[in-house]
């Protein structure tokens, strides 16, 4: 970094000069290792580059493996999903499809009014889960034809319809406007 002359405008109060400024090209150490400013800077840059490279690697791996795609029932019905691939399945909870079993097991169907997918879930449903309303479930399609969800979401803010669902349904021409 080049040192330029101070700015032409403005005058500086004396108090600004109090802090000690240290300059110099040789180290102030006890002489065990003499690194020039350039070597030190290279060390820093190498360390920064190393950390950055690791981070970029991690992010790329994570973006490859750890993201979950959103699908509507029409997207997955009749298609063979890779075994164990997690997806987010969104749509409306089909009217009259909710059946409750023992120990908080619940079965229902998610529909986009064209196709529908059977879902099984063990756990507590969100407060805003209702028949005929929008829902997003996350899980895996199994060979038994059921979508095994381990997470069921209904938005918990004033925008009741999960955004993906609203958009997927808009695409099908079913959904009009915001609630």
């Amino acid at each position: 970094m080049t040192r330029l002359p101070p700015l032409a405008f403005g005058t500086w109060p004396a108090s600004w000069a109090k802090a000690p400024e240290r300059h110099g090209l040789v180290s102030h150490g006890n002489g065990r290792s003499k690194m020039t400013r350039k070597q030190r800077r290279m060390t820093m840059i190498a360390a920064a580059g190393g950390v950055l490279a690791v981070a970029v690697g991690l992010i790329l791996v994570a973006l490859n493996d750890q993201i979950v795609f959103f699908q509507s029932p029409s997207d997955i019905v009749g298609k063979q999903l890779p075994d164990g691939q997690r997806i987010r399945l969104g749509g409306l909870v089909e009217e009259g499809s909710v059946e409750r079993g023992a120990n908080a097991e619940v079965r229902f169907a998610v529909t986009d009014t064209v196709e529908s997918v059977k879902v099984v879930y063990v756990g507590l449903l969100p407060d805003l889960f209702r028949e005929g309303q929008g829902v997003v479930t996350e899980g895996v399609m199994k060979g038994d034809g059921w979508f095994h969800a381990d997470n069921v979401l209904a938005k918990h803010d004033e925008n009741y319809m999960p955004k993906e669902v609203a958009e997927a349904l808009k695409g099908k021409g079913v959904w009009q406007g915001e609630e």
Partner: peptide, 28 residues
């Protein structure tokens, strides 16, 4: 580029440790 550079320090030093802190926190 107008700002003057300050004190020197070795990579293994309090400053060096704080640089590492900054490096990891900003990358995170």
């Amino acid at each position: 580029p107008l700002l003057k550079q300050g004190g020197l320090f070795a990579p293994v030093s309090r400053e060096g440790a704080l640089v590492l802190n900054n490096l990891l926190l900003t990358v995170a």
